[in-house]
Design a protein around this nucleic acid. Structure first.
Lengths: 159, 159
DNA sequence: GATAAAGGGGATGAACTTATCCGATTTCGG
DNA sequence: CCGAAATCGGATAAGTTCATCCCCTTTATC
């Protein structure tokens, strides 16, 4: 339903939100989110143009979150990649349906509407909370390279 | 959000539902729904394999509805073309998320869920009712070739 | 039967999405 | 000011969806 690219973007945004302002290189993001290194860069560039991340070139650089994780919603992020637009004009270009969609397109539009509502109801912060302590992005590598974990006193962590 | 192919399929199903059991040729369906003739056939074949339409070869043949328009939902039809599946297992294959998705995938899954619910709430019959008398499939041609129209005493028809 | 009308289905091309590659540019640190 | 580390962005390849083309089989009618 979402494009794979949108999925990738969400994973990387979660990884960046978890990093709490510290920059992560595209390489690190790639490994944490299982996105190929080169493609990860492309997606990060799109997120950068949309002002959701900021890039810092050069040594010690990387990508940092450039939005408020408590107000940025899933919908905001998905739409950077997938248009996911409501239907406002007749796809068949019928002039008599200007401002008054037929039953078919009105139904599809309502479906897109509830999808919007649902995706808008989750913020980036919401996605960081996981009762099990494992988030589907940003974990395995933090152990390898020894960055301190934020919630290591987890409840029933399986490793 | 829906693939264009799914849109086409819906338009053709509406046109067939409007025809009330009379067969329509792929050519007629193509013109009524603004789908190219050759591609229309391909989509009708998919709908046929899924048992939503039945084809009759030879002179006087064509495609007929093979499902109940009052119980077949938008969701049923869309899923012939687009899988639109709920998320049941972790897309990253993390075993610790078996039967317990992380917050990200749980959220996306809920979004797909509400989309399902909404699409399931419309039947094929619902899409035939249009207060303005114009449906976004199956109309222009009925005038050309003179098949009797079902609701010709329309309210504010613009031609 | 012959013929014309109709769908069946494989092969192919066009367009878009996804993914990779590589050289250029920026920036930090000695 | 040099070199390593990092992003930038254009070119290209691979894969998928969308669309077209063509030949075949089926079927109703004469």
């Amino acid at each position: 339903m979402l494009s794979t690219t949108a999925e990738y973007a969400l994973r990387m945004m979660i990884a960046l939100a978890e990093a709490e302002g510290r920059p992560l290189t595209s390489e690190q993001l790639s490994r944490r989110t299982d996105v190929s290194p080169d493609y990860a860069v492309k997606i990060l560039q799109q997120l950068g143009r949309a002002k959701f991340v900021r890039a810092q070139r050069g040594r010690g650089g990387g990508f940092r979150l450039a939005c408020d994780a408590s107000t940025t919603t899933l919908l905001d992020l998905v739409r950077v990649i997938d248009p996911l637009d409501r239907i406002t004009k007749c796809p068949l270009g019928r002039v008599e349906h200007e401002g008054h969609l037929c039953a078919l397109h009105a139904s599809i539009d309502r479906a897109i509407g509830v999808l919007h509502d649902e995706l808008r109801s989750y913020t980036l912060n919401d996605l960081l909370k996981d009762e099990r302590g494992t988030i589907c992005a940003a974990d395995s590598e933090t152990i390898q390279i020894g960055i301190e974990r934020r919630h290591n006193g987890s409840i029933s962590g399986s490793n």
